[in-house]
Write a protein that binds this DNA or RNA. Structure first.
Length: 640
DNA sequence: ATCAAATGTCATGAT
DNA sequence: CAATCATGACATTTG
């Protein structure tokens, strides 16, 4: 398994940003030279997802809808969307586009605009507006606009960035005024402004405005380009000025191009599973989820993020055959998924990093100890909370709203991470450092494992130390499912009938890793129930046996008492017989008038009722004969 | 820290 | 033949 390092460096500190808008056969290449720092996972993911040619076989092999076939009919059907309570209010533009009957349901204004342009046959205009095709799609940022999949629009601003960055704080102050003037209203009138009046003057700002305005409420916060510190040697080539793009670009990229996540993992209306099955599950739209989870990325003033991009380039260049496509589909997506997970959620960052931990490596996940440690943040090799959680979670709970990261797995995930400290020391320098040094320190062994043989080398006893009480209440499978963004609850996965289960798997775009985990969860869950039943039965058997033992013991005691009584009665009878014997013999006299010795004679009853006095020798011999005769008769009876 | 009970997990065979 | 169940053995968690 080939893992891509998440940083790309262009040497000059310039991030070559390429936005490929692949939509309904339309490819819009936006080539930007920005001293812009983008969230690496989003960048990598979208680069891989959308940086390739939409017409290439990669799209056919990928689990994503190919251009022109965005999503399945049932998923994209307007009715299905109308039934979605989470769907955003339809703006006029959206209605317009939908009225055109294109097989693509835009969720964002950019989507709508693009579809509108495509439907209107004005693709050239779109190309012209968005600039020249990318010189290197693999080296750029694929900022795809995914209509049907609603690429993570949710928007939450980036409250984490503001407190930690003076620039961001300043931006935050002036943001509202700008936003009021720039952010389109909810029904997309601002978007229509571009469409109706100034198509030919559509600028980057317009695009970014569109991107950022897909969630107007989120556009107030976040990092503007002006806030991003310029790297040495950076320039504003390709841009009018940084101020010109003083929009929530990072957020826009993060929210609107998070295609992989949106299409694979987003359980929103476009990929909603059977509502009947889902009725018991709280609908946790990933829109909201993703919007929150990108905050860490946005908030990070990453300095070295470009270090990973050449790696990506090499990977992309070296993998041009079917292997590449296969890897792109299975491994890379999974890996990216994991990496993105690591950057998108507090828990997940922790979880994923720990899941990939060397089993015996203690890795110093000392979350508690790291709370009051500030020096660790300056050590490249220290294993601090930030390193473990370096995959992009804020440590400043006050600065970020309590994001509800949970999917359907395990019900609710209140999600306060145990490692989320109160000091927020990771938010600034520490977090910056950690972010670009340790974000994707995945163990090669773990990285090389494919999705089928993927193991979870976690050490539960260690794991539990770093989990909050809430997380600790989750089972391991629930934590795993949450880490992989499995959009179903463990209970649901286990209890679902096999037919529903299989149809569910086929209806959702799940990575191999997710499918494997889901099947494992089902197997383990059923086996857990079976084991519980088995133990219950065993306990029942044991209890029944114990009850039987008690009953038998009581019966034994009763029998013993009866036997004792019988023996007592027998002894009494013997005593009486003895007395009677002596009484009889005391009265007997032989022919000479002498008393008869009871030791030499015995009394014997004859058949006619008379009593004879017989010498004991004859009595014993007679008894022996009778016994022998009786035994012979018994043997003969048994033989016959 | 230690230990025992409870519980989870895996392997395997049966259904 | 796949899915599920049953269960012994071992691992892990819990109190």
């Amino acid at each position: 398994m080939k893992y891509l390092k998440p940083w790309r460096s262009d040497g000059g500190g310039l991030l070559h940003l390429t936005i490929l808008l692949s939509l309904a056969g339309l490819r819009l290449d936006l080539d930007l030279d920005l001293c812009l720092l983008l969230p690496p996972p989003t960048l990598l993911r979208d680069e891989l997802l959308l940086g390739c040619d939409p017409t290439s076989p990669a799209y056919a092999l990928s689990p994503y809808p190919a251009p022109g076939g965005w999503g399945r009919a049932d998923q994209l059907h307007p009715k299905g969307r109308e039934a979605d309570p989470a769907a955003p209010p339809e703006g006029q533009l959206l209605r317009e586009v939908r009225a055109l009957g294109v097989p693509f349901i835009p969720r964002t204004r950019v989507d709508a605009w693009l579809v509108h342009r495509v439907a209107a046959g004005d693709t050239d205009g779109a190309h012209g507006l968005l600039g020249a095709p990318a010189a290197s799609s693999a080296g750029g940022v694929g900022a795809g606009v995914d209509g049907g999949s609603q690429a993570a629009p949710g928007g939450g601003g980036d409250p984490r960035a503001s407190p930690s960055s003076p620039l961001a704080a300043r931006e935050e102050e002036k943001a509202p005024a700008e936003q009021t003037a720039r952010v389109p209203d909810a029904d997309g009138r601002a978007s229509e402004r571009h469409l109706n009046g100034t198509d030919t003057s559509f600028s980057m700002e317009d695009l970014f405005q569109l991107l950022s305005s897909s969630q107007p409420e989120n556009s107030v916060e976040g990092i503007s380009l002006g806030d991003i510190p310029a790297l040495p040697g950076s320039s504003n080539d390709g841009m009018n000025s940084s101020a010109h793009y003083n929009v929530n670009f990072s957020q826009a990229i993060s929210h609107d191009v998070n295609l992989h996540e949106a299409m694979l993992l987003c359980p929103d209306n476009t990929f909603r599973r059977d509502p009947v099955v889902r009725t018991s599950q709280p609908q946790e739209p990933f829109l909201q989820l993703n919007s929150h989870t990108t905050n860490a990325e946005q908030s990070l003033p990453v300095a070295n993020l470009t270090a990973f991009l050449p790696f990506v380039d090499n990977q992309m260049r070296n993998l041009t055959s079917e292997d590449f496509l296969h890897d792109l589909n299975i491994n890379i997506f999974d890996e990216i998924n994991l990496m993105s997970l690591a950057t998108e959620g507090d828990f997940d960052a922790m979880e994923v990093s720990q899941l990939f931990q060397e089993p015996d490596s203690d890795s110093g996940l000392s979350l508690n100890s790291s709370h009051n440690s500030t020096s660790i943040t300056k050590s490249n090799t220290s294993h601090s909370i930030c390193e473990e959680g370096a995959t992009g979670y804020s440590s400043d709970p006050e600065s970020l709203p309590h994001h509800n990261l949970e999917g359907a797995v395990g019900g609710n995930y209140p999600a306060p991470m145990g490692h989320r400290n109160d000091s927020g020391f990771c938010g600034d320098l520490a977090f910056q450092h950690v972010f670009h040094n340790h974000t994707y320190h995945l163990e090669p062994r773990a990285l090389e494992s494919n999705s089928e043989s993927f193991s979870w080398p976690e050490k539960p006893e260690k794991m539990s130390r770093y989990l909050s009480d809430t997380e600790r209440n989750l089972s391991r499978d629930e934590r795993r499912a949450k880490a992989l963004r499995i959009p179903f609850s463990v209970d649901e996965i286990v209890r679902m009938p096999v037919d529903s289960f299989n149809s569910m798997l086929s209806r959702h775009y799940l990575t191999d890793l997710q499918v494997s985990l889901i099947r494992d969860i089902r197997r383990r869950g059923k086996n857990k129930v079976a084991a519980q039943n088995c133990r219950r039965r065993k306990m029942d058997i044991i209890l029944n046996l114990e009850e039987d033992v008690c009953n038998l013991q009581a019966k034994k005691e009763t029998l013993k008492r009866e036997r004792a009584q019988c023996n007592k009665a027998i002894n009494i009878m013997k005593q009486k017989l003895h007395h009677l014997y002596h009484d009889v013999f005391s009265r007997l006299r032989d022919d000479e008038g002498r008393p008869v010795n009871p030791n030499q004679y015995a009394l014997q009853y004859s058949h006619d009722g008379s009593v004879l006095i017989v010498p004991k020798e004859l009595v014993t011999s007679g008894h022996k004969k009778e016994n022998r005769k009786r035994k012979r008769e018994e043997i003969e009876d048994g033989f016959h």
